[in-house]
Nucleic acid binder design. Structure first.
Lengths: 344, 344
DNA sequence: TTGTACGCGTTATCAA
DNA sequence: TTGATAACGCGTACAA
């Protein structure tokens, strides 16, 4: 029983299994990849040898020979907070159902890093890529095209975009919320946004607010903006900044829920009552927005559905099946306690 | 300029670069891997060809030939909440400083899935692995040993463990908190814990509470336990369950902060005032525990330091350098508003 | 149904 | 310092 192991102390290869089962390596390979091409009897013999030797195929060799990895890569801006977690989870689940594994990388919101990650994932043989947002150096898109790697863009939606997309309309979603805010009587609006450079989601959301103000005849100059990196603490600092300005806003609209709960916490600390003294809104409808106190008015984004659809689209593209290449995910307003009517 | 591309429309290889630069593939390879072994003049010539062709090395082929990937894998139980995010971020940063890339997989707290992920990462050529907790089928440890893949275990600490470890003592940390709780006069203790099966962290934490009770002469039977999966909503449901029992606890100790903030939110909903009617404690000291209202008393875990030390240890092991193989990370009590003295 | 033999894109050894 | 050339482990025509 132990005798065979004495040969060497390295990890077994296809050839080892073939020797053990007294067949050719080709047969072993077929047993593993297309079992129905090999007759029952040899198959069991081979599988027995596989089990006995504890053989596991070498992924790299396989990828090299087959030019396919059954792997899809995703690059998200951050793993530090929950913004992308839910959508990515659903994305992964759907891939799993298809026997595809997910490789995740995070770019820390830095486009330079993102390009590096893209090249890394491609050189690792990812069959396709999920990317967040359109904004990207044209050169990298050209690189992907030349490499023949299918890409789906998520978390944004532009019907005219050249790339397959599964996402929502950041502009309209935020504009709808801003319209609501204005209808409630607010005129002095403050904004806490994530960095807008290289980030079309935050840029579009901000544009949505501006557009709603213009429509309502509120001069754009009255908008006070604090730009910061995403984070709870950062949201708090930004709020403090906004509230220390001469003309205090009556509402602070945040680029996402993480910033918003940070703002709410800081407001409490400063003795500002929400929503009596100040209204606050978020974006995303993460779980924390429900348990925040007061609970957070926000834009609900069906992240799980977005992740699932994106996975399906990519799977289709890899197997060159036809299908939609643009899916719009509808968002909705989630009215909770943190936004109230403005009354002087 | 364009002429060379007409040859083929596939991604350029070493050989293409070699042809273009009129050198051998070996030289090109050396230019990329050990540039000082090749003379300045040829090097610039080669790099020029690389740039012109947009050459990117094929990772799989490289791994196959070099038997090394400069990649370390990590398998964490979940990406859905922040429990592991902070530590993993620091882990990745430290790896990056060493030119090592991180491959993450999540097991959804299922040991079967985790084994699969381990095999996947190994077959992908991960040079080493970071795993959470000791509890694991001996067979998988044997597999790892035979494959010669170094492993570091984190988030736990047992001085007698056979494996290199960077972590904290879940038992003692939770016991310290329980001692504090008891010293404040609490006798009827409720617990909301994550699943204890296959999870040594939650098991140890629970054992810590039991031990503190025993030390204080509180009968173990008075402990009421709700076991659930980690999640904000789940924490709420568990709290409701505990509070609907005949003998209501005066304090609910939660297995982590996520469960705790869920419990707090639900308590509010039920009109239970915290900490007047009920005290609540957490574990981890995530960012939400500070902004929770009332703020959450919890155990502070220096996640970032743990991640960083784990990375260093693994890097050392891969390069076969000597070094510590057991690092204890100290935790501390973080007293905040949600835990108060018990007074009938 | 099974086996032979070549190719995948690198790295590494050994000569030159 | 550079160039041939043999691995690396697997998939897959093609032949048997």
């Amino acid at each position: 029983m132990e005798a065979d192991e004495s040969k060497r102390d390295r990890t077994p290869t296809l050839a080892d299994v073939a020797r053990q089962a007294k067949v050719s390596t080709a047969t072993v390979s077929r047993c593993l990849n297309s079992p129905d091409q090999v007759v029952e009897k040899t198959r069991t013999k081979v599988l027995e040898a596989v089990r006995k030797l504890g053989y596991a195929p070498n992924f790299n060799a396989r990828a090299l020979a087959a030019k396919r990895t059954n792997t899809i890569g995703a690059i998200i801006p951050t793993m530090e907070n929950a913004i992308f977690a839910r959508g990515l989870q659903a994305f992964q689940e759907e891939l799993g159902r298809n026997g595809t594994t997910l490789l995740v990388a995070s770019s820390s919101y830095q486009s330079g890093l993102e390009e590096e990650q893209i090249r890394t994932l491609v050189s690792r043989g990812a069959d396709a890529l999920l990317l967040i947002g359109y904004h990207r150096d044209p050169e990298i898109y050209e690189f992907l095209r030349r490499q023949g790697v299918p890409v789906v863009i998520a978390w944004v939606f532009d019907p005219k975009a050249k790339f397959p997309t599964v996402g929502f309309d950041n502009f309209s979603a935020m504009k709808a919320l801003a319209n609501k805010v204005i209808r409630l009587g607010h005129r002095r609006i403050g904004v806490i946004t994530g960095a807008t450079q290289d980030n079309d989601r935050s840029t579009e959301r901000l544009r949505g607010i501006r557009s709603a103000m213009t429509d309502a005849g509120i001069p754009e100059e009255t908008l006070s903006i604090a730009e910061t990196t995403y984070g709870i603490a950062e949201g708090g600092i930004a709020l403090e900044h906004l509230m220390s300005q001469p003309s205090r806003p009556s509402v602070v609209m945040c680029g996402n829920d993480v910033l918003a709960v940070g703002a709410i916490a800081k407001a409490k600390e400063l003795g500002i009552d929400i929503p009596r003294d100040l209204s606050v809104t978020g974006f995303d409808d993460l779980e924390i927005s429900k348990i925040s106190s007061p609970s957070l008015t926000t834009v609900h984004v069906p992240h799980r559905r977005m992740g699932k659809e994106a996975a399906r689209m990519l799977i289709n593209m890899v197997s060159k099946k036809e299908g939609q290449d643009k899916i719009l995910i509808e968002t909705s307003l989630e009215m909770r306690e943190s936004l109230a009517e403005y009354s002087e």
